[in-house]
Write a protein that binds this DNA or RNA. Structure first.
Lengths: 204, 204
DNA sequence: ATAAGGTTTAACCAAATGGTTAACAAATGT
DNA sequence: ACATTTGTTAACCATTTGGTTAAACCTTAT
């Protein structure tokens, strides 16, 4: 009974699981809710993914695999550090505005299960900072940017870009923004963040 | 039967609850585990806190109340913007190195329960950005710092300081740091982050 | 047509979980 | 001394939850 229809059952499950796991986390998610959302019997979840843990892993891996290409725009292309920062900030923020649950989901589950990231690290395509580090050192030597530890710089970039999504409730509460002005705030960061970073590191 | 001993039962419970909730979250925490850790009968949890939700709220409020004073070092003192940033970065990082679960716990639970923060906001002492915003505008007019939206600046400061704790697994994996070099990395941020920000905004 | 294989369902199960109860013990006020 | 309140425990309970089973249902190859 192959489904040539729009979606195979296995995909329906993964889709539903994604939605439930990403908004409630591993511990908060219920298999029944996933089954309901996928419009199938609960037993099907086990038929296709054996158990909750494996279903979760499938969702998590797919989520993480969306993050990696984003990071490669900054890590593995050949442009200048300034261009890397501008491209990444624009790309990342644009992308995450479409997938707002993603950053929190990944951070939360990575913190919940310490050795989860070890599995990921064995995958090919796991982000590697070496090329970025070399480029930073290079531009420092050339006098294009001021001396800074490349790790510190990289995680500053990451921090400034990810935080608006992780800290959404904090941002809304502290600065009295409603949903609309929160979105404007994030939107304006597509360029503001890059300017902020480049201002800090660029030699004049 | 008042306990004049080292710790009252109620405090033991809160202590144990703090430890379990902060490392596993509301959904992942088990009442039995809390009881075991507090060395008391599970019924005592309900005797003192009625149910899981209320016990959790007690823990969460206490956790959040540790964060607020940190923020007031940047929001409500009278020093220059530069000094605010240097003090906050030093204080916050020092404090969180002693309470590494706190940032993730707060962020995670705030994202889990949207209207949780509304309750907090009614409390007196809830962080207010007005004074900080005024000071930033003032220094911009005086030509001490470059033009920047005060909200953007504030959340940049927050992002750069909180991220090392939220993203610990990411940092360790991406930059191949063990526990020791991760701690050195965070330690060095006590001054690096402030320099990074001030570099970006200060007029030369 | 029908046997064989994968796919789907309803009903079921054991364990875990938050919460309750009733009896007991320790303080405290009178 | 003793009655009353407060603190504590073991046993219990109802529900939820992840997971299983056995039968039914399609689809396809022969």
């Amino acid at each position: 009974m192959k489904k040539t229809k729009d979606e195979t059952t296995e995909e329906q499950i993964l889709e539903a699981a994604k939605s439930v796991f990403q908004s409630k986390g591993m511990d908060g998610a219920r298999m029944q809710e996933i089954a309901d959302k996928a419009n199938i019997n609960k037993a099907m979840l086990h038929y296709y993914y054996r158990n909750k843990e494996l279903l979760f892993e499938a969702v998590f891996k797919q989520a993480f695999s969306l993050l990696a290409p984003q990071l490669n725009t900054i890590l593995n292309d050949d442009s200048s550090v300034e261009d890397k920062i501008r491209h990444f900030t624009l790309n990342y923020t644009t992308f995450m505005m479409k997938h707002p649950y993603l950053p929190n989901f990944i951070i939360q589950e990575l913190n919940r299960n310490e050795n989860f990231i070890l599995k990921l690290k064995q995958n090919t395509g796991f982000p590697n900072l070496e090329k970025f580090k070399a480029k930073v050192k290079d531009e420092i030597n050339q006098g294009i940017i001021k001396p800074i530890d490349a790790d510190q710089l990289f995680f500053n970039i990451l921090a400034l870009n990810i935080f608006p999504f992780l800290g959404k409730p904090l941002i809304k509460a502290f600065s009295d923004k409603d949903e609309k002005s929160y979105k404007e705030f994030v939107e304006s960061r597509k360029t503001e963040v890059a300017n902020f970073i480049i201002n800090s590191i660029k030699c004049k």
